[in-house]
Design a protein around this nucleic acid. Sequence first.
DNA 1: CTGAATCCAAGTTGATACTG
DNA 2: CAGTATCAACTTGGATTCAG
Lengths: 144, 144
Amino acid sequence: MAKSLENRFDAVEISEAERYLDAVPPSDIDPRVERLVNQLIGRVADKWTMLILELLEERGTMRFTQIGRAVDGISQKMLTQTLRQMERDGLLTRTVHPVVPPRVDYALTPLGNSLSAAFCGVWVWAERNLDMVEAARARFDARG
Amino acid sequence: MAKSLENRFDAVEISEAERYLDAVPPSDIDPRVERLVNQLIGRVADKWTMLILELLEERGTMRFTQIGRAVDGISQKMLTQTLRQMERDGLLTRTVHPVVPPRVDYALTPLGNSLSAAFCGVWVWAERNLDMVEAARARFDARG
DNA sequence: CTGAATCCAAGTTGATACTG
DNA sequence: CAGTATCAACTTGGATTCAG
């Protein structure tokens, strides 16, 4: 990981006032858990993962090319890559049918379904607050 | 955006069987909304944004350097950048106190608080399913 | 203390071509 | 159809330096 800001001022002399201002209550989260959670969220919160998650939740089992067509803008490379990751994480199953032409079905696992449900709140928030964010951006950009 | 898979097979002749296999029900999401939602989620789902969001939710108003120390591994550049983005999106307020040395306070807006709440479900899911995901990865890696 | 600006290494992604 | 392989372009993020 990067050299954090942690040590940038550790060695410098600071006044009592500064010490007070910078004092922070200790985090009440287990650092080990926090690290793992961050890693996990970083993975699942990726753009394509979320879109595929929602897609499969909505439509059920789908084939490779179907997903590719449904997810706007995704390249076949990222599609393959994202599906592999999701399979590895246990979010979906990959079923190869031994026929020609090949047919591969993808479907969410219960774990995938539960993650989709957990993300639901974020989707709802986004839909509900789109205008708020747009307005905030406009105001911000209107200033310098 | 990239040339999607959308058109890769649009021009080729396909059998009725293929046509059936690839048929997908029309999406019931307004494409315009979907695009904006994706953009929004892509922004807020970013690693540092989420961590800062949780931090400010938990601790309230904080100064620039305090946040830098609390968010493990973040560089000063990313801290500045992320805070600016969040301010632009209306998630937090930035208050400059005209003193020397400078003092700048950051605090979540109601919009920021609501987003934090929306993300809560994801955090809970991540904590609860850490072991499931780890196990799934182990199984996946154990095969080829 | 709180930034802005620059440089650059490393990682990500997309386009393209090829395979069974 | 469902991938794999490769390479160039683009993006990202960290380190560093400087300023008010």
